[in-house]
Design a binder for these strands. Structure first.
Length: 765
DNA sequence: AGTGATCAGATTTTT
DNA sequence: TCTGATCACT
């Protein structure tokens, strides 16, 4: 035991050994927070606590996995794997599946992601005949989300004068009604959205005391990471679960609270003190990560915030380098300079590319960085952006899986009923929706017995519907007999979905096919991996239902790295939370971007932006480089930018303000800047060499130059070679029609097409 | 019913 | 710049 504690400082040790009763750890950036959590759990286990009785809630699944691995190294056997550890959402989704019948849900309920919710809300607004511009799905959903996070049900919402008045003022008086409809529709579809997972757990614990009691007894020790980013709903879950024995330990840093837009509430830290008067508080203030300059600069910045728990983070590390400030003329040049600096540092400092991170405020900023890194052939890995699981082809095939597991899932049904095309169109769907509404059944129920509802659909289409339902039924029948991989492959083949993508030889099509392959590989791994699961799942042939249980809560961060070559990391600051890198570039540090233009109106929002900046600074171990551009493309337009106020908040003692002479305005397209040659003229990036996102379907590189002129349709003659934007090079093999109706048959590499010349915009080669 | 072309609208962060 | 929605043509 002593040797376990030997690697900890006094404060850390205090937080680890105080296993009984409520503990709050306020952990400054880089102060060994994760270390405390892992050691605390390992300590508990060594003391003989059954890992099955420990619940640890983390912010991402990845964090949970890594922590399990580290604990696994501290305790013997595979014990660590029976810990209950994961995100709030994944842990409680699991409990909900076990207890769902109490709430009237089937255990195989679907979890709707944001897109599903949006599409559902849109169809509700439409069905109510309301103006979709006034009743914007995203606006409605964010209000509903906020309500749910504060445990306000649809009924309670309608009763709440303040909320209802706000909606009236904003000319959306029907919001409460739509909230109610939305919930009803979710229930009918046997689906829950992200917020429901937490909301329903609260309902479960409120309405079924004996169930709550069961879990109180099971979870003897509860730990919560990133406590500053929990919302009220999460707070109450923890409070209820811990009410029996109060062995609860929360770890957080109010200075790093950056998710209030999602309902996170720093108040939870203050509430915690009130809830447990005998609370023991430990402050971890020694930073082991960064140099003195970085720590001091970060402290200086964060002290501009009014609301915070007092603490003074310090370090005994070297003074280190000053923070570097980079001013560039454009976002393009910013990317270029960042890439060049990484290139040079990598050589001069003898480090690998995984020592570098480029952090930005918004995902869209990644583009210029990517282009620049690609030009220098520097490998990079992008986190976030358009998630793998949000890609169309992935969502399509997952929709099949969803429908097979849970046939009430209407969003899934709508997505695939006519993909690949099988002659069931808009009109038919409208009729089905009406019939479903009339008979109070799900659309699926109507389809399955399409003949018995006297639908005014012609018999050919009825047969198509029945073919579809037979197909789905046959897959359903195989759920229990085939493993996930075999069934998934079968589905891909017999729906024609794989063939459809296989025949598409455009770069987009190829990439889509590869993405499906990647997903299939993932399913295969899932089937083959033999993890020790806890009592909720018995070990068996892992089925597609098993696979689908976890999938909705996965994000890109959970995806396995396909190779181990060191790469530069690109991500938003939000995603960088909890990570550390020797060299950190913070780019786009400009007014209206960082702080975001959306955050300038209130002090509260501005302080959150500042905390975000604090998080960015404290990711770095050795050096921070802050850059900003004087011009930047936003929404395709050039905008002028000013350096962020946050730069001024860093004391001159810690930042290296560059000499002005290095940053003269360019006189010619090519110039020398800081020793780096930069082409200021727009240059198309060459096709990357594979060290980029595999899931990238953008094909801008393979399209012809957008500036190219189109030929007049009248000039096009038989036998000419022409260029088409999408299909590429082709030959005119037939001409037909006159004037604006002139058509041509063009033979392309992948077959011939009939094109109307007025629209086709062919270019004569 | 299916397809392509054009237009409007959006971008702050995410489990 | 990119996406989704809508329109118009076959």
């Amino acid at each position: 035991m002593e040797e376990l504690l030997a690697g900890l400082n006094e404060k850390q040790r205090e937080a680890v050994v105080q296993t009984e009763g409520p503990v709050m750890v306020i952990a400054g950036a880089g102060s060994g927070k994760t270390r405390v959590l892992t050691y605390r759990i390992a300590y508990l286990m060594r003391k003989g606590v059954d890992p099955f009785k420990i619940l640890a809630l983390t912010f991402t699944n990845k964090a949970a996995r890594e922590m399990k691995d580290r604990i696994g190294q501290l305790v013997s056997g595979g014990l660590a794997y029976s810990l209950w550890m994961g995100t709030f959402h994944s842990v409680f989704a699991r409990i909900l599946r076990a207890e769902s019948t109490l709430l009237g849900y089937p255990s195989n309920f679907t979890i709707y992601d944001t897109d599903d919710s949006k599409s559902l809300m849109k169809s509700i607004v439409k069905a109510q005949g309301l103006d979709p511009k006034v009743y914007q799905a995203s606006v409605l959903l964010s209000r509903i989300s906020a309500a749910k996070n504060n445990l306000i049900s649809a009924a309670a919402y309608a009763q709440n004068q303040e909320l209802v008045n706000q909606d009236k003022v904003n000319s959306r008086p029907e919001t409460a009604f739509l909230y109610d409809l939305y919930q009803k529709k979710l229930f009918q579809s046997a689906a829950m959205d992200f917020d429901d997972l937490l909301f329903k757990i609260n309902v479960l614990f409120r309405d079924f005391p004996e169930t709550l009691y069961k879990y109180q007894k099971r979870f003897q020790y509860i730990l919560v990471d990133e406590y500053q980013d929990t919302n009220f709903s999460q707070y109450l879950i923890v409070k209820k679960l811990a009410a029996d024995n109060e062995n609860v330990c929360v770890v957080g840093d109010d200075a790093q609270s950056i998710y209030s837009f999602r309902g996170a509430n720093i108040e939870n830290i203050l509430n915690f003190k009130q809830d447990y008067p005998q609370l023991k508080t430990v402050k971890l203030e020694q930073n082991y990560r960064s140099t003195q300059n970085i720590v001091n600069a970060a402290n200086k910045v964060i002290h501009n915030n009014k609301s915070q728990i007092f603490k003074e983070v310090w370090t005994s590390n070297d003074t280190g380098e000053k923070i570097k400030l980079l001013k560039t003329t454009s976002d393009r040049e910013e990317g270029s300079m960042v890439a060049h600096q990484i290139f040079q540092d990598q050589m001069n400092q003898q480090v690998t590319l995984d020592s570098f991170a480029v952090l930005y405020r918004t995902n869209s900023q990644s583009r210029s960085i990517e282009d620049a890194l690609r030009k220098l052939n520097l490998a990079y890995r992008i986190y976030g952006g358009l998630s793998f699981y949000k890609r169309k082809e992935i969502k399509d095939i997952l929709a099949y899986f969803r429908l097979i597991v849970n046939s009430s899932d209407e969003e899934a049904l709508k997505r695939i009923i006519n993909y690949p095309a099988r002659g069931i169109g808009k009109t038919t769907m409208e009729k089905l929706t009406l019939a479903a509404h009339k008979h109070e059944k799900s659309i699926w129920d109507i389809i399955r017995e399409a003949k018995s509802y006297g639908l005014s659909i012609n018999s050919g289409t009825i047969n198509k519907l029945l073919d579809f339902s037979t197909m789905i039924e046959s897959f359903k029948a195989q759920l229990d007999t085939k493993n996930a991989y075999d069934l998934a492959t079968e589905i891909g083949k017999s729906t024609g979905l794989l063939a459809d993508l296989y025949h598409d030889k455009t770069p987009e099509g190829v990439s889509k096919f590869e993405n499906i392959e990647e997903l299939m590989n993932g399913i295969k791994e899932f089937v083959e991996e033999d993890t020790v699961e806890t009592d909720l799942h018995e070990q068996k042939n892992r089925s597609l239902s098993d696979y689908m249980e976890g999938i909705a809560l996965l994000t890109d961060a959970d995806k396995k790295e396909d190779d181990n070559t060191p790469k530069v990391s690109l991500m938003t600051i939000h995603q960088a939370k909890g990570l550390e890198y020797p060299f950190v570039h913070i780019v786009g540090v400009e007014e209206n971007l960082f702080p975001s233009i959306m955050a300038l109106h209130s002090r509260k929002d501005l302080e959150e932006e500042r905390r975000l900046f604090y998080v960015a600074l404290t990711r770095a171990e050795r050096r921070v480089t802050i850059s900003y551009a004087e011009t930047r493309f936003k929404w395709g337009k050039l905008e002028y930018c000013e350096p962020s106020r946050f730069i001024d908040e860093i004391d001159d003692a810690y930042i290296d303000v560059p000499r002005k002479s290095n940053f003269r305005k360019p006189a010619t397209p090519t110039r020398v800047s800081g020793g780096i040659r930069i082409k200021a003229k727009t240059v198309k990036p060459t096709l990357p060499k594979g060290n980029y996102r595999k899931v990238d379907t953008s094909s801008s590189d393979s399209k012809p130059q957008p500036g190219a002129a189109y030929s007049d349709p009248d000039d096009i003659k038989m036998g000419m070679m022409v260029m088409h934007q999408r299909f590429g090079k082709g030959e005119i093999i037939a001409l037909d029609g006159q004037g604006s109706n002139k058509k041509a048959k063009v033979k392309f590499k992948d077959g011939s097409k009939q094109l109307i010349l007025r629209f086709a915009r062919l270019k004569i080669l």
